[in-house]
Design a protein around this nucleic acid. Structure first.
Lengths: 127, 127
DNA sequence: GTATCACCTGGAGTTAGCTCCAAGTCAAGG
DNA sequence: CCTTGACTTGGAGCTAACTCCAGGTGATAC
């Protein structure tokens, strides 16, 4: 599969796909005789994984390290697991923060709804 | 309250507090006779609000717009509500993405745990 | 009275993560 | 054969959100 199709399928620009490969976030993709990338199934799974991790905000740097460990084989399994565990905790923490914000937004929206009603009858005062 | 104490209380650097004021994300804080900022209760609540929103990733630009509307008074209530609603939805969407990633991480970690056990007995193969 | 310290300002510098660009190659269509 | 269009590269440019810095002021401690 050529880069354009991969780009389309995962909604990642070709520039970004090439960039990811350049920085070692995606392992070097095999080329055909004329030097054009031809993504195979494994490449696609890797792209999807990276897309998923990036969409949640995991830093590129950490992912590069993880991908590097994957390439070094079995003896890095422990290290990889530790990275995933750490990132999992950081992610959970961020989500908790976001939940607080979501709650506050819901509360504020609610206050605004009432304010609009109240305003129709007279006084309001919101910050 | 002086900027250093505000910085300490909310874990926001004094540089960032001044920066927020410069760009209009926080309304101009009153100064004492010698030009030094003296945050009052309302200022603190505003700082806390901004901190909360920023911690969830709401863009500075959007927050500036919101804060600007607050300053313009009651006739902007509808507009403010719409901003909050939109940001609420975007936030919920991001959290959903993150939940997917969290699930995948949990699954991977689980696979790794098993791999470590299996490895002790012989074969492994994880990507 | 002078050293220290927290504060002030405007502007420059930094970081992460892309995103764009120029210049070049190659395969296919007319 | 020549154009078109998708691909290639290395490197420059961009955006958001800080973060740092130089140079200056004013209050307090010694």
């Amino acid at each position: 599969m050529k880069i354009a199709e991969v780009s389309e399928r995962y909604a990642i620009s070709t520039d970004t796909l090439r960039y990811y490969e350049r920085i070692g976030l995606i392992q070097a993709v095999k080329r055909n005789e004329s030097g054009i990338r031809d993504y195979n199934e494994l490449d696609l799974r890797r792209v999807e994984f990276i897309k998923c991790m990036r969409s949640a905000g995991l830093p590129v740097e950490v992912l590069i390290e993880y991908v590097g460990l994957v390439q070094r084989g079995d003896q890095t399994i422990e290290a990889r697991k530790e990275i995933l565990k750490e990132q999992r905790e950081l992610l959970a923490a961020r989500m908790k923060e976001m939940q607080k914000t979501l709650d506050l937004l819901d509360h504020k929206i609610d206050v605004y709804e009432n304010a609009v009603l109240t305003k129709e009858k007279g006084t309001v005062q919101i910050e």
